[in-house]
Design a protein around this nucleic acid. Structure first.
Length: 655
DNA sequence: AAGGAGGGTTTTTTT
DNA sequence: AACCCTCCTT
């Protein structure tokens, strides 16, 4: 059977344009992923070696899906597969090979969001900036902005816009120094260093240019400047670049994504062909009409109007409730009814929201009404204290240079190494230019530190050394060894001590077990498991990974997620909740510029276009905020999406 | 050094 | 309402 069967003209054209720069403007639900995978197959059919095709995505989930789809299409006959990877994994892959050229240690660590935050905290404290003047999160985003603009810590002072920038520029230096001392890189560095490598070492760039003769980028509207440079370098010689995206779905501006890259693609690559996919196969006419109405309000976009393929759809439903409790209660009740009485499958339902705080009420309701649900992304378990503690242990065991992790667990659970001692050690390390670990291992007969503390430090060090040996020599038993570690430090007791509530205790230890399961899952999945490898995988996966072990739950649960993590997905029935001013659009955007509002509008557009058959938009009239009840008014986007130009403005009739 | 009480602050979105 | 930080007592 022909792979091109069942593709419409535009899709077919996109899948068979095999060389030169190509821009595929693919609206929501137009079969974009299918086109990309068919195109890969077509490339291979035309004689291109599979492993010289590089497809880049933004999320692990997207990469995984594309891998599966292309494996299906290509069959299992060849062992050589096209390379499908995320930007970040691609960079890790390159840097693992070549990072020494940039003066970094070959075994560099990748720090996750939590590491970043603690480094930001210490950096701020060190330059004597109070939390009030500049928050850690704020510092991180400023640093990120500088990094993405190619401004390093020595030049940041020249790019200062306001007082906070000034403080941030000072903390930036400290932050970088900590990073270097740990032999670590942050997420931005992954991209940045790869770029630097390609810039400064043409022979390395040439190697990768030759390796990949064809490059495809998915969700191209989300590329930031650094990612653009990376891609541009790779295809500079052959220009075999196919980018697929939808400027109307650009929702990562806060991360430095530039719609201008997709808008200006043809200017950058003058020989580029542009193909539009406007035939929507996902949503009903009613849903699509709403989406089209809304997105028309945005200026400066590639004008396209999606055509619906599903006529006679059900009406979109709008509902309002007195408060967020009722909103959750009613929505869950409706869902429960549909599952019980209408044979609706839980996995066909999704609840989408703007902020990570919104799902809390829903979680309570789901549990109360006993409806299976799964919260995707959000404050998932990598952010929990217990998980973070164990992670810090593992990181310390993996590299004793990792001061940030070591400080987190040096006295957790309490083992008699208090604040005063720790500070002394740190001061000494700084003065002698040695690592904290070296100083700790050199305290024989030291009078400055009490014998009791010295004993505790000695015990800590030998414990870490012991586990480093064991985990190094029997990586196949990582999970079991981690359990031993937890027993040795008596973490269960720590939990009991910290949480008086018994239910809380059970849940917390359950989370730890869950985490150990993740480790054994990793060990099973990898041919050559190692502690280092585990840490890298978790750092790159971050939070968005749906743990495969919960497959059964996953297959039979209502999905709860933010609008951001819903991108690329589709569901037969969608609830968009919290359709209120200052929530969607978010307060920060309302207070910002028209550009910010435009992004919120796109976000809403993304949400609406997730729905295949049924869409319900709900809002609460009041909502708790900072412990106080606040009035909420309907989101402007409801008006914009439902207002028909031919409607005369209605006179209100009193009475 | 450890633990508890009280006070102040906070809520965008993520690889 | 939840969290973190600081200060105070043991």
């Amino acid at each position: 059977m022909d792979r091109l069967d069942g593709l419409n003209t535009a899709q077919r054209q996109a899948a068979t344009t095999l060389s030169g720069p190509l821009l595929v403007l693919a609206g929501a639900g137009t079969g974009k992923t299918r086109v990309i995978t068919v195109r890969m197959a077509e490339l291979i059919r035309s004689g291109v070696r599979p492993n010289s095709i590089l497809s880049v995505t933004f999320t692990n989930k997207a990469a995984k899906e594309m891998q599966e789809r292309s494996a299906q299409l290509l069959g299992k006959r060849s062992k050589v597969k096209p390379v499908v990877t995320t930007f970040h994994s691609f960079c890790v892959r390159v840097l693992r090979q070549e990072i020494e050229l940039l003066g970094y240690p070959k075994k560099f660590a990748i720090c996750d969001r939590g590491d970043q935050e603690s480094m930001a905290r210490t950096a701020l404290r060190d330059v004597r900036v109070t939390d009030k003047a500049l928050r850690p999160g704020d510092l991180i985003s400023r640093i990120s902005r500088w990094k993405m603009a190619g401004v390093d810590e020595s030049r940041a002072a020249d790019y200062v816009d306001d007082d906070r920038d000034l403080l941030a520029s000072m903390a930036y230096r400290k932050y970088q120094r900590t990073l270097r001392a740990r032999g670590a890189v942050d997420f931005d560095d992954l991209l940045l260093l790869t770029n630097k490598l390609f810039d400064q070492h043409p022979e390395v760039l040439r190697k990768y240019q030759t390796m990949f003769q064809h490059v495809q980028v998915d969700e191209y509207q989300d590329t930031n400047g650094v990612q653009f440079d990376l891609i541009e370098s790779l295809v500079r010689e052959h220009h075999n670049l196919c980018v697929v995206g939808d400027d109307d779905q650009s929702i990562y501006g806060f991360r430095g994504a530039e719609v201008t890259h997709i808008l200006g693609f043809s200017r950058h690559f003058p020989t580029a062909k542009t193909i539009r996919l406007e035939e929507n196969y996902r949503c009903t006419d009613k849903i699509l009409e709403l989406a089209n109405n809304l997105i028309k309000k945005n200026k400066g976009r590639h004008d396209k109007t999606l055509r619906a393929n599903k006529p006679n759809g059900a009406d979109v439903v709008f509902k309002s409730y007195p408060d967020e409790q009722t909103e959750a209660e009613q929505v869950v009740a409706e869902i429960r009814y549909m599952i019980a009485e209408l044979n609706v499958v839980p996995r066909d339902l999704a609840i989408l929201f703007r902020t990570n705080e919104q799902p809390r009420v829903f979680e309570t309701e789901f549990r109360r009404q006993r409806v299976p649900y799964i919260l995707i992304g959000g404050q998932s378990f990598f952010d929990r204290r217990e998980t973070r503690d164990l992670m810090a242990y593992l990181k310390t065991i993996n590299s004793q240079r990792d001061e940030v992790s070591m400080l987190r667990i040096i006295n957790t659970p309490a083992r008699g190494i208090g604040q005063t001692t720790t500070e002394k050690l740190l001061k000494r390390a700084l003065k002698q230019g040695r690592t904290l670990w070296e100083v700790m291992n050199d305290l024989d007969g030291d009078k400055d530190i009490p014998a009791k503390a010295r004993g505790a430090i000695g015990g800590f060090c030998s414990m870490i050394r012991g586990y480093a040996d064991r985990m190094g020599s029997e990586p196949g038993n990582l999970a079991e060894i981690s359990n031993d570690l937890l027993k040795e430090i008596d973490y269960k007791y720590e939990i009991e001590r910290q949480y008086k509530d018994e239910g809380q205790q059970i849940r917390r230890s359950g989370m730890l077990d869950e985490f150990v399961d993740t480790i054994s899952h990793y060990v099973k999945q990898n041919e050559k498991p190692s502690l280092d490898g585990f840490l890298e995988t978790t750092a790159l996966m971050g939070r968005d990974e749906e743990n495969d072990k919960d497959e059964q739950l996953l297959n039979n649960a209502v999905r709860l997620m933010t609008l951001h993590s819903a991108k690329g997905l589709e569901f037969p029935r969608v609830y968009m909740v919290g359709m209120e001013e200052n929530l969607l659009p978010h307060k920060r955007s309302v207070e910002g510029s028209a550009k910010d509002i435009a992004e919120e509008r796109r976000l809403t557009y993304v949400g609406i276009t997730r729905a295949q058959e049924h869409l319900t938009l709900t809002r609460a009239k009041t909502r708790m905020k900072f412990g106080k009840r606040k009035e909420m008014i309907p989101s402007r986007f409801i008006m914009e999406a439902t207002f028909k130009p031919e409607d005369e403005p209605q006179e209100t009739v009193a009475g």
